[in-house]
């Protein structure tokens, strides 16, 4: 009961804030709603026994990436929103497309989960790492053993992205 109440409250807030993010007039307000949205998603992760992921979500998303967005929003400091150029016909078209995709998604999700029933033995995971609550240590273990190569690749990706971002944002390259 309490679990259901918590889930529905969180879900309603997450979706509502999501709508606010995409509909807010001012980009700064949009960023603010995004932060709160990410924090609530982190709470959702805690209810799903994923404390480490929840903390990482707050640390990296809410505390890092979104700050970057906020910086950029302030840096470009728009006089007027770009929406004044918007084309009503395109909005209608995209609305139609979206309705179709929503329908498809929900139908697929519902039908597949109804069809699945009990999962077949032994096909659930490649690495089979069952976990208990409070799994930070296990997660670290898995990350540095089974997923070592993807982990190193991710770190290379971050390094490349860092260099790329600096090169792109630097004002006078080579002068």
């Amino acid at each position: 009961m309490a679990e259901a109440l918590l889930f529905y409250t969180l879900a309603a807030l997450i979706l509502g804030l999501g709508v606010m993010v995409v509909s807010a007039r001012s980009a700064v307000h949009s960023v603010l709603f995004l932060v709160v949205n990410f924090l609530l998603v982190a709470v959702l992760y805690v209810t799903l026994n994923a404390e480490f992921v929840a903390v990482i979500q707050v640390l990296v998303y809410a505390g890092g990436i979104v700050v970057l967005y906020l910086f950029v929003v302030m840096l470009v400091n728009l006089k007027q929103a770009p929406e004044r150029f918007s084309d009503p016909r395109r909005l209608a078209r995209s609305g139609l497309v979206l309705g179709g995709v929503v329908l498809a998604l929900i139908v697929v999700v519902v039908s597949s989960s109804l069809r699945a029933g009990a999962a077949p033995e032994g096909t659930l995971s490649g690495f089979g790492t069952p976990f208990t609550s409070g799994n930070t240590e296990q997660l670290g273990w898995v990350l540095y053993t089974s997923y070592l190569i993807p982990f190193e690749l991710a770190s290379m990706l971050l390094l490349v992205a860092m260099v790329g971002a600096i090169v792109l944002a630097k004002r006078h390259l080579g002068e």
């Binding site: 994923a50 480490f52 992921v53 990482i56 979500q57 990296v60 998303y61 890092g64 990436i65 970057l68 967005y69 950029v72 840096l75 470009v76 999962a119 659930l124 995971s125 490649g126 690495f127 089979g128 790492t129 069952p130 976990f131 799994n135 296990q138 997660l139 898995v142 990350l143 089974s146 997923y147 993807p150 991710a154 770190s155 990706l157 971050l158 490349v160 992205a161 860092m162 790329g164 971002a165 600096i166 090169v167 792109l168 944002a169």
Partner: peptide
Amino acid sequence: LQDLAGQVFVVFVIAVAAAEAAVGLGIII
């Protein structure tokens, strides 16, 4: 499913999102 693979994936998704945001915002600037 009581399987950590999902959470490992999330960690990678967050890492890729960070990289994407950095480069994307660099392009915007």
